[in-house]
């Protein structure tokens, strides 16, 4: 997965994220596709790639939303690093590990964003309940998407 592919995937995820934000005014869709991409990049490449992609993805997401620039990137950078580090030490690619891994890192990311908003004295972008649902959504959809991509990708000998 080269840098260009990562950039393209992040761009697609950003468009999907914008669409989710745009069309879910009635009933929110609990998913952050950028986090799923960051997790995938960290799993496939390295903690550095995970951190950089998390940082870029977060900045893009913040720039396209009403959030302060850097809030999402702070969390996503940590997600990229943590997943990258864990994937070196443990085999987290199996479904048994993948689902809780994404759930925990998503909870950490959203929790950090809420905490930061509270420290800065600005209204949080979403309530804690929504953060929980997004984390569960990320874990479910992320696990399914990553497994599907893994299955579709041609295996290297």
């Amino acid at each position: 997965m080269n840098a260009l592919r990562i950039a393209a995937t992040l761009a697609v995820a950003l468009i999907i994220d914008s669409l989710i934000g745009h069309y879910s005014s009635q009933g929110r869709i609990y998913l952050d596709p950028l986090t799923v991409v960051v997790v995938y990049v960290a799993l496939k490449r390295s903690p550095t790639a995970g951190m950089l992609s998390g940082s870029v993805a977060g900045l893009m997401q913040d720039a396209f939303s009403a959030q302060l620039l850097g809030v999402s990137s702070l969390g996503k950078t940590i997600v990229g690093y943590a997943v990258g580090e864990l994937s070196i030490k443990l085999d987290v690619r199996s479904t048994v590990f993948l689902f809780p891994l994404i759930l925990v890192v998503s909870l950490a990311e959203n929790g950090l964003a809420i905490l930061l908003d509270r420290i800065l004295g600005i209204p949080p972008i979403f309530p804690a309940r929504t953060a929980l649902f997004i984390s569960i959504g990320n874990a479910g959809a992320g696990t399914a998407i990553i497994k599907l991509v893994e299955r579709l990708r041609p295996r290297r000998r």
Binding site: S55, G58, L68, L69, G70, V71, S73, L74, T77, I78, L116, L120
Partner: peptide
């Protein structure tokens, strides 16, 4: 992280 915090 430091850069992000400064940014925020």
């Amino acid at each position: 992280q430091f850069a992000h915090l400064v940014l925020v």
